[in-house]
Amino acid sequence: MEEEIKYEILRIKLRRIQELNIKAKKSLLKERIPTSQSSLSIINYCLENIDYLIPVLWKNPQMNNYQKYQVYKNTRKLKMKDPGCCTIV
């Protein structure tokens, strides 16, 4: 009985290694491009795409929504502070 269990475990072990080998063979067949080539493609992507989070490289010509909302909030505050001519005391 013990021997049978041992055999079963070994059988599973063999199957695992064989599966791993099949994967390794597949991985070996995979086409790989040189890292210099992939690096250059990444560098080009970084340099060509607009990124307003880097203001030294990309200056946003327009106000962004956050800035617009700040301006709106400030003008609203000013309006509320200025009582105008309709204040009833």
Binding site: L20, A24, S27, R32, T35, S39, L40
Partner: peptide, 24 residues
């Protein structure tokens, strides 16, 4: 498995010819 992994490693070493820092 061992020989396959050495082979993969050698293929990978051939492909490694400079990363992001070296190219930028």
């Amino acid at each position: 498995a061992r020989s396959l992994y050495t082979e993969i490693e050698s293929v990978k070493t051939k492909v490694r010819d400079g990363g992001l820092k070296e190219n930028s």
